[in-house]
């Protein structure tokens, strides 16, 4: 039957859930091997962090959408965690091939990396459902409160850190549909054009460090 916008949005939701049915909300055997290969095994920290972020996410979700929707928030979070572990495994496989290393201790013990990756995974899940709400003509739906950059505030993520995972996320998850890739591109644009320039942004610290380190490359001469 012809794809109406609502049917297309519902199809996106079914596809997202279908893609993740074979993925558990716990690390796979392959991920556990990567964890064990680390100088410092990050397994416990990763599990603990997912649990903590689950509590925070559910509370904020209920505040934004309605207390009776806390269970819905937990379901969204579970989908996000499934995608998080799936993409993490794919990222590590490609890094292993690219760098010819198997010990990712620094990366896998980097809390900002995990929070950003989980944040991006949840953004994909939320955008899929919000897309349905908007196409369903219920722009008043409380779920539209969850539009980007809501997830940055929930996890108190610096926009610049979230920005860093987007491209690798898109490369690592080939099943992402074009409209979702476009959504993540719009998130990037929003970060680069405004959010990254807020007064408390990491960007200013990085720019200061660059200036202190001195320019590695000579500035281009002005065009004549």
């Amino acid at each position: 039957p012809p794809q109406t916008p609502i049917r297309a949005a519902m199809h996106s939701i079914q596809q997202l859930r279908g893609e993740l049915t074979s993925n558990s909300d716990r690390p796979s055997g392959i991920l556990m091997v990567y964890f064990r290969n680390c100088t410092v095994d990050p397994s416990e920290d990763i599990m603990k962090r997912v649990e903590q972020l689950s509590q925070i996410f559910s509370q904020k979700f209920a505040q934004a959408v309605g207390q009776r929707c806390e269970g819905l928030g937990k379901k969204r979070f579970t989908l996000g965690v499934q995608l998080y572990y799936k993409v993490m495994e794919s990222m590590l496989k490609s890094e292993e091939k690219r760098l010819s290393v198997q010990n990712f201790s620094k990366l896998l013990n980097n809390a900002t990396f995990h929070t950003s990756l989980l944040g991006c995974s949840l953004e994909v899940v939320l955008a899929t459902y919000v897309g349905y709400s908007l196409k369903n003509g219920s722009s008043e739906s409380p779920e539209t409160n969850l539009c980007f950059p809501w997830i940055l505030d929930v996890f108190q993520l610096h926009a610049f850190d979230f920005y860093k995972v987007i491209e690798s996320f898109i490369k690592a998850e080939p099943t992402l549909k074009h409209d979702m890739i476009e959504h993540l591109w719009r998130c990037e644009q929003q970060i680069m054009e405004s959010i990254a320039w807020k007064s408390d942004s990491l960007l200013f610290e990085l720019l200061k460090q660059c200036r202190e380190d001195g320019p590695e490359e000579q500035a281009e001469p002005p065009a004549t």
């Binding site: 890094e95 690219r98 990712f104 620094k106 990396f113 995972v165 491209e167 690798s168 074009h178 476009e182």
Partner: peptide
Amino acid sequence: TQDYHFGLEDHEGISELFDCD
């Protein structure tokens, strides 16, 4: 619709972006 423009060089990946190379 907009195509995504990949900007990372071949020698850049998530490890470098989080200073974990």
